[in-house]
Amino acid sequence: MIVGYVAGKSPLHQAHPFTALALAATVVVLAFALPAPQGPAALAVALAALALLARLPRVLLTALGFSLPFWFFLGVIHGLIGETPLRALTVGAQITAMLTAFLLVLATVHPARLVDALLQRGVPFSLAYLLSATLQAVPRLRRQAADIVEAQRCRGLRVRGSVWRRTRAVVPLAIPLVLGALGEVDERAMALDARGAAAPAHRTALEPPPDSTAQRVVRWLLAAAAVGVIVWRVLA
């Protein structure tokens, strides 16, 4: 399962962070604006191909893993009960496409380069940091959760077995995770403050990502695609 940055040299890794974000935003627009169900389905397939091209098959598997429960419930609600299987296919493909796009951005955009790019555009560091920290929060919490699982298992908690047993195990895992995260807030805030995060100076971008004409053209094309599809759908 991948929900964070993975080092690599694919074109997506080389892309300017804003280009990757533009791709994700365009996918969201297209997922809803393209004719259903073939549009969202084609979009999901295209993103799957992009994930494979970027040599990130695990991103694709993660997106499918997250999508699976949605597909199941959509199948039950629309396929079995509502007898509208095409609706299930549309919503399922929309969810899968958007999840794949966001996970691809998470896996290929280096948070520090995103901050550098935002700083270059004059965005305040506090805002840029908030965005970057949010992108990294999931992998950090997953690591902490894994540590808590190990610790609780050492103390006799059984986290495998029946659904009932797994459900009961959630409380002793979730409470230390939430309380631990809250308990760290003060210390993290102190460390950041002491390291100048609230300094009045404009933070230096350490490695500002290069932004070529080609990158700008791609972003304009993505924006044009999103607007174009909306206009086409409204007129049609």
Partner: peptide, 19 residues
């Protein structure tokens, strides 16, 4: 800092904040 993937970047976090 929560935004560094190398030790070098982590050490540079404070000085960069000072502009």
């Amino acid at each position: 800092s929560g935004m560094s993937f190398t030790v070098e970047e982590e050490v540079a976090f404070g000085p960069a904040n000072l502009g």
